[in-house]
Design a protein around this nucleic acid. Structure first.
Lengths: 106, 106
DNA sequence: TTCGACTATCGTCGATTTACGATTTGACGC
DNA sequence: GCGTCAAATCGTAAATCGACGATAGTCGAA
């Protein structure tokens, strides 16, 4: 998969309000979280499960079986590519802040 | 529009390889660029125009009429929201860099 | 004015996405 | 074994997206 496609895939994973909300929930939750997600987003269980599957396929989150439920957590590394790209768009020449990486990705 | 929807809209604007490619082209082009985009992405003119419209609607790029052609340029400010969100996902607790804005935009 | 180059818009088609209820799977306690 | 709860999967219908050709509009040059 080309870099463009990889970026598009990552962006597509974030391209839905329900998934943004899920990521916010994971971000705000220290440990694990399972079926509470369903109640929080206000969609049907099957729909939420589908969104979780999309996020998991994109590598943005990880699902770990923890007894009777599943423990979801963020996978920050997967977003490095997108974060770097967006940052490069934001500051094409003037790095107003955090310049550590010029444009490292390979 | 809620913050979640705004983020999803921004992400959706990036959720296509052709649009990623267009943004790369704009990033790599110092000044203006017009119909050269069509040749570079290898799609029909109408299709490219549609992608440009989507990017423009999302506020990611700006189109300025410059005589017979249109001058497209990146609009870094529009990406601040997305960049901030992705960065917060990348470093949920350890802000290795630039923490200035907790969640400023309204 | 007429021509040619460039861009935007319209209409349409097929593919993909989204959402839901219903069903199935898996893990636990009885 | 059996029932229960949580999660995933299946099947389906509505909505959206992506691509294209054809068309219309705009500008500068001849």
């Amino acid at each position: 998969m080309s870099a463009d496609e990889a970026l598009a895939t990552l962006a597509k994973a974030l391209a839905h309000p329900a998934r943004i909300r899920i990521l916010r929930l994971l971000l705000a939750t220290p440990g694990c979280i399972g079926g509470d997600i369903v109640g929080a987003v206000g969609l049907a269980q099957s729909t939420v499960s589908e969104h979780l599957r999309i996020l998991k396929t994109a590598g943005v989150i990880t699902g770990e079986i923890d007894g009777p439920r599943v423990c979801y957590a963020l996978n920050p590394e997967a977003l490095s590519l997108l974060a770097d790209f967006v940052a490069s768009l934001k500051s094409p020449e003037t790095d107003a802040c955090c310049i550590p990486k010029p444009k490292a990705p390979s």
